[in-house]
Design a protein around this nucleic acid. Structure first.
Lengths: 205, 205
DNA sequence: ACCTCCTATGACGACCTTGTCACTTATAGA
DNA sequence: TCTATAAGTGACAAGGTCGTCATAGGAGGT
């Protein structure tokens, strides 16, 4: 999955590179990959069609590059948590991850939109890029959950797989549904998350 | 949102009508509306291009008709529950709805696939067809939850909106993720649902 | 046999997309 | 100033889409 914009692309003036990427982000956040129009990107970044093909092999190449940028930006938000050095209980760790995810959404709504379109596509690209990524995350979570069970933080009857699924589903779906469109207040969001996590912790009854 | 295949369509021999719908279901379950190709449907149902436009105004018309069929079939599975005459507690009602939803998924995987593509599209069509449908469901659920709170089935501190969201998210997403691809055992599924509902009821701690 | 109404048919126009290619311009070093 | 290398350029081919239209076919009534 090597992503190679041409050497030519990197030789370009920074402003030009940025203009192209910005145009691509704009287009890809409005239309999923298959429907996104290179013509729009070209128009918006004011480069001739021919030039584009000197920077990237094709539309997909550009998409992958944009995706790579997004991925690394998101990682910056999560990297401290992902190691879980302090062995935080699973649900608390999840709360933090969730909160960081939301922070990311607020800072970069277009990126989130691209990701949302990507996720919901479930097309060939999805399988290509995500591969077993989600399965790994799932396994990861299951491990944390099992550890929590041993420590007595989580009841042993709970099905680890189902809980992990639930939680993954939350991050990929609810976060977006709930928080992307309307005007957003970070502190209020944190309260919502608390509320949500509490449902999981104590149950509703 | 009137859907009108032509009178001509209904005059057609039943077999022919079914052939066309089957081809449409097949195509629309593989590609979302925008990407679905009329050419494929025409090829698969072995009718000339010109004929198609005597049965339906256009691609969208056909899609709407297919969608209408799916909707009514799904309603058959849920109709007894939706009235909630016996005033079943919310989470138990939800369990039943969920189970019926899964039964539907098993019986009509192609329909589910069409619906999944539709949901994930979030395009213009989505807004047109769903309108405030989901918001109504949400409000519906919130009402049930509040009733349960009064009855003491649900703790009053629980945020009704968040719980309703969570539950809606489950029906539209997890059911599909979890249960569509692999070989399926209905009884085992029911156990899984129980397990899931129990997380909500009792919490994980 | 004729006339009317409904259905069948596929070539075609209009449109749009991606990627190519032959050609031009600019830059930088000798 | 000359030359080599890099970047700029847009018309165009190839391929695909949807929806139309002019014409053909068939069934039934008079």
């Amino acid at each position: 999955m090597l992503i190679i914009p041409t050497k030519t692309f990197f030789n370009l003036a920074m402003k030009k590179q940025e203009r192209i990427i910005a145009a691509a982000v704009d287009e890809f956040s409005q239309r999923r990959f298959e429907e996104a129009k290179l013509s729009n990107i070209i128009k918006a970044s004011i480069i001739p069609r021919g030039s584009f093909y000197q920077y990237f092999q094709n539309k997909k190449d550009l998409y992958l590059y944009v995706f790579k940028i997004i991925k690394s930006k998101k990682l910056e938000y999560l990297k401290d948590l992902l190691t879980n050095e302090q062995e935080i209980p699973f649900l608390d760790l999840f709360k933090l991850l969730y909160a960081q995810g939301i922070k990311f959404s607020i800072d970069h709504p277009e990126y989130v939109e691209i990701f949302r379109l990507f996720i919901s596509g479930k097309g060939q690209l999805y399988r290509e890029l995500m591969g077993d990524g989600l399965k790994l995350t799932h396994q990861h979570y299951v491990t944390y959950i099992e550890i929590d069970k041993e420590k007595g933080f989580i009841r042993p009857e709970i099905d680890s797989n189902i809980l992990a699924n639930l939680v993954i589903n939350l991050t990929t779906n609810i976060a977006i549904e709930e928080f992307s469109s309307e005007e957003i207040n970070y502190d209020e969001l944190l309260k919502k998350i608390d509320s949500l996590i509490n449902i999981f912790k104590k149950g509703v009854e």
